[in-house]
């Protein structure tokens, strides 16, 4: 188990290294940094000065090494727009994105799992059929369209919920959170709902499929023959078997929530990383783009690692093969 974990950690570091190379090639070799950094009407001297300052006259491998060194130190250079270290700017926006992602995942699990259990246990009931049909809609509705409809209905027509911004935040651990105020919570509603619809549908369908698969198993019959209560049967024997694929999906979805929060954050003017990166791309703020990509890589690799570890705790058969 410990050797497995060590191997897995080395793998993760390797993946991050490969990604630094790809990001470096993408930004420095395929794109022309000179054209980004230097205005077309700059004179020759100015040009040379900037090229030297950014080390663009160095051979490619030494440029990569200094890029790698910077990455490891968390130094991606100053943002052109904010004049502050890029990493710091992004990290200051991260809590907002995280808050959105965590709230959306929580809501999806809290609604998706019980709905899936119900639909799996009573597949022929009207409610289960209705929810299954609804989930197809939840899959196919484009995010931006859903966001706009929700805004139209709840903000414009009913006027119940705010359509943009984070609202009032409260500082906790030195970071501002919307979770803790009514105003903040009301601002969370619409973006979280937008992000959750798809995931609720997904989790619900997976849980339902899992229940349908597990219930006819012989070990469920045997567990019933032991005289266990329905609750014990459902929440221990069935749920623990279903959680294995569900945890994987939750991990992947959490990663994509953080990485692709761009659309929702733009529509709801949510001051998170997604909104920031779109703004940065629009003005070609190179250090910001690089720092953002590396953060996303790091988050994805970390989530994968956590999912893998959870997997081993959930499924003893996987654990055995890793011993």
């Amino acid at each position: 188990m410990t050797t497995w974990l060590a191997q897995r950690l080395v793998q993760s570091v390797f993946v991050v290294l490969v990604m630094t190379a790809i990001v470096f090639v993408g930004v420095n070799v395929i794109g022309d940094p000179v054209s980004i950094l230097i205005s077309p009407d700059a004179n020759q001297q100015e040009r040379a000065r900037i090229v030297a300052e950014f080390g663009l006259d160095q051979p490619l491998w030494s440029q990569y090494l200094s890029f790698l060194k910077g990455t490891l130190q968390g130094n991606f250079g100053n943002s052109f727009v904010y004049g502050m270290p890029a990493l710091q700017v992004i990290l200051s926006r991260m809590p907002a994105t995280m808050e959105l992602a965590i709230a959306a995942i929580l809501l999806s699990v809290l609604i998706g799992v019980p709905l899936g259990l119900y639909a799996g246990l009573r597949p022929h009931s009207f409610f289960a059929k209705f929810m299954m049909a609804g989930s197809i809609l939840g899959f196919s509705v484009p995010l931006f369209w859903l966001a706009l409809i929700l805004i139209m209905f709840f903000s414009v027509y009913l006027g119940w919920l705010p359509a943009s911004g984070r609202g009032q935040t409260v500082d906790f651990l030195g970071i501002g959170w919307s979770f803790f105020t009514w105003d903040g919570l009301s601002h969370l509603c619409l973006p979280v709902l937008t992000l959750s619809i798809f995931k609720i549908s997904l989790i619900m369908r997976m849980v339902r499929a899992g229940v349908r698969e597990v219930l006819p198993q012989e070990y469920i019959k045997f567990a019933r023959a032991k005289g266990l209560s329905r609750q014990r049967l459902l929440y221990v024997h069935v749920l623990k078997n279903i959680m294995i694929p569900v945890v994987t999906i939750i991990g992947l979805e959490f990663g994509s929530l953080i990485a692709f929060s761009v659309v929702t954050e733009s529509i709801f003017s949510w001051p998170g990383m997604g909104k920031l990166i779109i703004d940065s791309i629009n003005v070609l703020d190179r250090p910001m783009i690089v720092a953002y990509l590396m953060i996303i890589v790091f988050i994805f690799v970390t989530i994968n690692l956590i999912v893998d570890i959870l997997y081993t705790t959930l499924d003893p058969r996987v654990r055995l093969s890793r011993d």
């Binding site: 070990y219 045997f222 023959a225 032991k226 005289g227 623990k240």
Partner: peptide, 22 residues
């Protein structure tokens, strides 16, 4: 439910499948 497993018990055919794997 109270009777099952207490006064009447059952054993099934496939031992590979009768115990919950997790």
């Amino acid at each position: 439910e109270r009777l099952r497993g207490k006064r009447i018990a059952m054993i099934f055919q496939d031992p590979m499948m009768t115990l919950n794997p997790v």
